[in-house]
Design a protein around this nucleic acid. Structure first.
Lengths: 102, 102
DNA sequence: AATATATGCAATTATTTGGTTGCGCAAAAT
DNA sequence: ATTTTGCGCAACCAAATAATTGCATATATT
């Protein structure tokens, strides 16, 4: 079972969940209310997000609050950063970029 | 057929292809040489990357050179940017972030 | 002209994915 | 104590995905 961050954010529902809980931790039911999908479907997405550590949980009675883990998302940004220069940086820095990619 | 950038970069081979051709445009055969997978498998990945416009092509005789399109990749960076503040910015800017996410 | 090369397309298959439904369990509420 | 609520787990299913194989076509090379 491949469970990396890139695969996790490939799904639009999961991306929406992340934007939701980035604001504040939420329970599965609260999250599911924001979507058409069933609670179970949403819960499955949360499970995937948890397994790849984009999300962590803290139990509170019978409720479970899921919260966003920024550090893991940073992995995407890190992979992206060498490319970033290609769309925003001046041409005299292109050599640096090429070196980074190798 | 869902064909967005996020789904495209979910596959590790496709990410590797992108890093490869970001340096300079390459033909499918040249790209395939860098992987275990067959030429056809790689070609399919290239097709997906082309369909979501992460890659564009220019024909040159019977060879086709595929090149990276930074602008499309920027979409990922744009989606990521509000989160970015969560792992690197000072706390007094957190309000701005929360507004951006809503 | 005949052959070799570069490439795309189509059909097939195994695996993965996203979703549903039903069930069980523990914590609250009545 | 009984019922309701919040949640995860397992089984199942349809659709999508990744990869293979075989074939067609156009451009080079001989």
């Amino acid at each position: 079972m491949r469970r990396d961050v890139f695969q996790a954010i490939a799904d639009p529902t999961r991306r929406a969940i992340l934007t939701l809980i980035a604001i504040h931790a939420m329970t599965p039911n609260a999250i599911a209310e924001h979507f058409e999908s069933s609670r179970q479907a949403v819960s499955k997405h949360i499970k995937i997000l948890t397994e790849c550590e984009l999300v962590s949980q803290k139990q509170q009675g019978r409720e479970i609050y899921y919260q966003f883990n920024p550090q893991k998302m940073k992995e995407v940004a890190d992979w992206l950063s060498p490319f970033q220069q290609l769309w925003e940086t001046r041409f005299d820095q292109l050599d640096d970029l090429l070196n980074n990619l190798k």
